[in-house]
Amino acid sequence: MSETLSPAPSRERRTYSIGELARRFEVTPRTIRFYEQEGLLDPERRGQTRVYHEKDRVRLSLTLRGKRLGFSLAEIREVIQLYDHAPDGDERQLRRMLDILAEKRRGLERQLEDIRALQHELDDVEDRCRESLDALLARHSRDA
Rank of each mutant, 00 (worst) to 15 (best):
V27H: 07
L122Q: 12
D90T: 01
E44C: 12
R45P: 09
R33A: 06
Y52N: 13
R116M: 08
H85R: 10
D124C: 01
L94T: 07
E26K: 09
D84E: 14
F71L: 15
R128W: 13
E26M: 02
E44Q: 14
D99C: 04
G107P: 07
S72G: 08
R59A: 14
L73A: 10
E109A: 13
L82A: 05
L112V: 04
G66A: 04
M97A: 08
G70Q: 08
V79P: 11
R92C: 03
R106I: 02
L108R: 04
R116D: 15
D99L: 11
T49I: 06
D42H: 11
R68P: 00
D88W: 00
E78K: 02
L94H: 12
K104I: 07
S61H: 15
L98M: 11
R77N: 04
Q48A: 12
V27L: 07
R23A: 08
D114P: 00
R24T: 01
R46F: 03
M97G: 06
R45Q: 14
R116K: 08
D99K: 04
Q93E: 14
D123H: 10
R50P: 08
E75G: 02
P29L: 13
R45A: 03
I32V: 12
V51W: 13
R46C: 01
R77W: 01
R24C: 03
T28N: 03
R59P: 03
E78G: 01
R95N: 13
L60I: 03
E113R: 14
Q119S: 10
L101A: 13
G47R: 05
E54C: 07
G39S: 09
E38W: 10
Q37R: 11
D42T: 09
D123E: 14
L40G: 04
T63H: 00
Y52S: 08
H120D: 14
K55L: 03
F71Q: 03
K55R: 14
L122R: 15
E121T: 03
E38P: 04
E38F: 05
R24Q: 11
R46L: 04
S61C: 04
